[in-house]
Computed example of a mutant assay.
Amino acid sequence: MSFLFVSKFDKLYGAGLFFLLLLMVSGNDDFITKYDKYHTVCKKMGYQDKQCDEKEVIAFHARLTTYLRNLKDKDVVVFGTVTLNTGKGYNPTTGKFTAPSRGHYSFTWTIATDAGYMFSTQLVINGNPVSYTHVNGKSRGNNYETGSSTVILKMEKNDVVSILLCDTGPLAARPDWSSFSGFKL
Rank of each mutant, 00 (worst) to 15 (best):
E145Y: 04
V25K: 00
H104G: 07
I111A: 07
N126Y: 01
L17R: 13
D159G: 02
I125S: 07
L12G: 15
V78T: 03
A99N: 02
V82F: 13
D49V: 00
V77D: 01
M24V: 05
F19V: 11
K184I: 09
H39R: 05
D159E: 13
F19A: 15
Y117N: 03
I163L: 09
Y132Q: 02
G87Y: 12
L23G: 15
Y144L: 15
S149C: 05
F19M: 08
S120D: 09
G80Q: 15
K8N: 15
I111Y: 02
M118P: 01
T33P: 00
L171R: 09
K34E: 00
V124P: 00
N28L: 04
K72R: 15
T93N: 12
L165T: 02
T110Y: 05
D10C: 09
M24E: 10
H39T: 04
N136C: 03
V76T: 07
N91L: 08
T40D: 10
T98Q: 13
D75Y: 00
N128W: 05
S181E: 10
V130L: 02
D53I: 12
V76N: 03
T40H: 04
L123K: 00
I32G: 04
V6D: 14
Y47F: 15
R63K: 15
G87E: 06
G46D: 06
S131Y: 01
A62S: 08
P92L: 08
T94M: 11
K55G: 12
K43F: 06
K8D: 14
Q48W: 14
S148N: 07
S7D: 15
P129R: 00
F180M: 07
D114F: 10
T93A: 14
S139A: 13
F3A: 13
T121F: 01
Y105C: 11
K43M: 06
P170E: 10
T66K: 11
T40S: 07
T121A: 07
S178F: 01
P129F: 00
I32K: 01
W109H: 06
T98H: 09
E145L: 12
A62Q: 03
V6S: 09
M24D: 05
G127S: 02
N142C: 06
A173T: 07
H104E: 14
A62Y: 02
L153E: 10
F60L: 05
F60G: 06
K55Y: 07
T93I: 11
E54M: 14
F180A: 03
A112I: 08
T86C: 12
S106M: 11
L68A: 09
H39S: 08
S101R: 08
G137N: 03
L23V: 08
K154L: 10
G141N: 09
D73R: 15
K96M: 13
A115L: 06
T86F: 13
S120H: 04
I152C: 09
N128K: 11
V76R: 02
S120Q: 05
P100Q: 14
T108A: 06
H61R: 12
T81L: 09
S7F: 13
G89C: 05
S101L: 07
S7I: 13
A115W: 08
D29N: 03
M118T: 03
L165A: 01
G169W: 03
K8F: 14
M155C: 15
P170I: 11
S178Q: 02
T83I: 04
